[in-house]
C-alpha cells in the first residue's frame, strides 16, 4: 500500500545544532587483517570510560581502512599513550592526531530518507571556503568536523541553509 503525505518547508527543518569545541580527531590506519586486534585495543580504551562524539571508518586506499575517533581533547593524551604502548607511532606513521577541532551536528525529520540534505550542508560551507575535515551522514544525523575556530563562521552559513528552532 502506498501512502502519500504532503509536507512543505521553505528549507530543511532541524531539531537544532549541537556544537562542541576543544575536541581531538584521531586518525588510525588499519589493515583489514588487524581489525580484530584493534577491536581488542579499543575495548581496553572503553574501560576508563573514554567517550566519543563521532566515529567513522572508511577506506583511504583500496587496502587500508582509516578509523577516525573524535573525542574530548582532555582524553587525547591517555588514548595516545595507550596506543603508543601497542604500536610504534614514529615508525609506522599510521596514526595522526588533529587537535583542537570543532564539531557541528544536527538531525532533522527523515533526513536519512531525503535527497539533498548533505549537499545543502556541504555547499553552504564550500561556497564560503570553509574546509570540512571529516563528515558523516548516518541515520537522520549529519556530523561535520571543522578546524579550530571555523565553527563560528560555519554556524550562520548552516543556519541559512537549514531551519533551526529558536529558543
Amino acid at each position: 500500500m502506498e501512502t502519500i503525505a504532503v509536507y512543505w518547508e521553505p528549507k530543511p527543518k532541524t531539531y537544532g545544532f549541537k556544537e562542541v569545541t576543544d575536541l581531538s580527531l584521531m586518525n588510525i590506519e588499519i589493515t583489514p587483517g588487524k581489525m580484530g586486534q584493534w577491536g581488542l585495543w579499543l575495548m581496553e580504551l572503553a574501560d576508563p570510560d573514554i567517550g566519543f562524539h563521532l566515529i567513522l571508518a572508511k577506506y583511504s586506499t583500496h587496502q587500508k581502512l582509516r578509523l577516525y575517533i573524535l573525542l574530548e581533547k582532555f582524553w587525547a593524551d591517555s588514548v595516545l599513550s595507550h596506543i603508543d604502548n601497542r604500536i610504534d607511532l614514529e615508525a609506522e606513521k599510521y596514526f595522526h592526531l588533529t587537535s583542537p577541532v570543532e564539531l557541528i551536528s544536527f538531525q532533522g525529520p527523515h533526513f536519512g530518507d531525503r535527497y539533498g540534505i548533505a549537499y545543502s550542508a556541504f555547499k553552504a560551507l564550500d561556497d564560503q571556503g570553509i574546509p570540512i575535515l571529516v563528515a558523516a551522514c548516518s541515520g537522520a544525523a549529519v556530523y561535520i568536523v571543522l578546524s579550530e575556530k571555523k565553527l563560528l563562521a560555519a554556524r550562520p552559513l548552516l543556519a541559512e541553509a537549514f531551519e533551526v528552532p529558536q529558543p
Binding site: 587483517g33 575495548m43 573514554i50 567513522l56 558523516a136
Partner: peptide, 28 residues
C-alpha cells in the same frame, strides 16, 4: 552510549571472522 566497547567488540568479532567491512559510522 558513546562508549568504545561496542565498537571494539564489533571490530573484534567481525575481524576475527574475516567479514568485509567497507565503512562504518556512529550516529546519535
Amino acid at each position: 552510549h558513546s562508549n568504545l566497547k561496542l565498537l571494539g567488540l564489533s571490530f573484534y568479532l567481525l575481524g576475527k571472522q574475516h567479514l568485509p567491512l567497507y565503512g562504518m559510522a556512529s550516529s546519535i
